[in-house]
């Protein structure tokens, strides 16, 4: 009996731990009504936003946004670690925070890219142009329907 009680508490405490928050690690994503990339969107979330996460189903988290909207977000858009640097850590002498230095050490941020652009080391014209090649979900749906691909897994 005691063991059952203990197990029940374990599950309960586990559920509390699961109701954690996660950070959005992509520039922008959608909160969808169904766990599918083609599901209609109820909210837009941006890099650094924090969402409350619940159930994880086939790679999709059930989330609640700061606007109180509920829906599904793919796990690849979320990180368990905070992704934005906390304010107030900037060094007054160099204007560079320890976190920024650590990030630069691994490569890889806008500051380093701007330096490469300014030095003339790399030309990003076409890289920026590639980013403008965007396809919206309605176009994808129409493309799939027209091409008789709707039989694929959603």
């Amino acid at each position: 009996m005691k063991i059952k009680y203990f197990l029940a508490l374990f599950v309960l405490t586990g559920s509390i731990a699961l109701a954690a928050s996660m950070s959005v690690q992509v520039q922008q994503s959608k909160v969808r009504v169904t766990p599918s990339q083609l599901g209609s969107a109820v909210d837009t979330i941006k890099y650094g936003d924090v969402v409350n996460v619940g159930e994880l189903r086939n790679g999709w988290y059930e989330v609640t946004t700061i606007n109180g909207k509920k829906g599904w977000v793919h796990e690849s858009a979320l990180s368990k670690k905070p992704v934005k640097m906390s304010a107030g850590t900037a060094n007054t002498t160099t204007g560079v925070s320890s976190d920024e230095v650590a990030l630069a050490g691994k490569g890889f941020n806008e500051q380093v890219e701007n330096k490469l652009k300014a030095d003339g080391t790399l030309d990003y014209t076409w890289v920026d142009r590639m980013k403008t090649y965007n396809v919206d979900p309605d176009q994808i749906l129409a493309f799939r329907t027209q091409g008789h691909l709707e039989g694929g897994a959603k």
């Binding site: 890099y47 670690k81 992704v83 320890s98 050490g105 890889f108 941020n109 806008e110 890219e113 790399l122």
Partner: peptide
């Protein structure tokens, strides 16, 4: 700093590497 460098690259860092690779 050490902890950070031992982590996997973040999604954002991966993005900046990819942009420079294409350039």
């Amino acid at each position: 700093a050490i902890e950070k460098s031992q982590q996997e690259l973040t999604s954002e860092q991966e993005y900046y590497v990819g942009r420079a690779v294409v350039a």
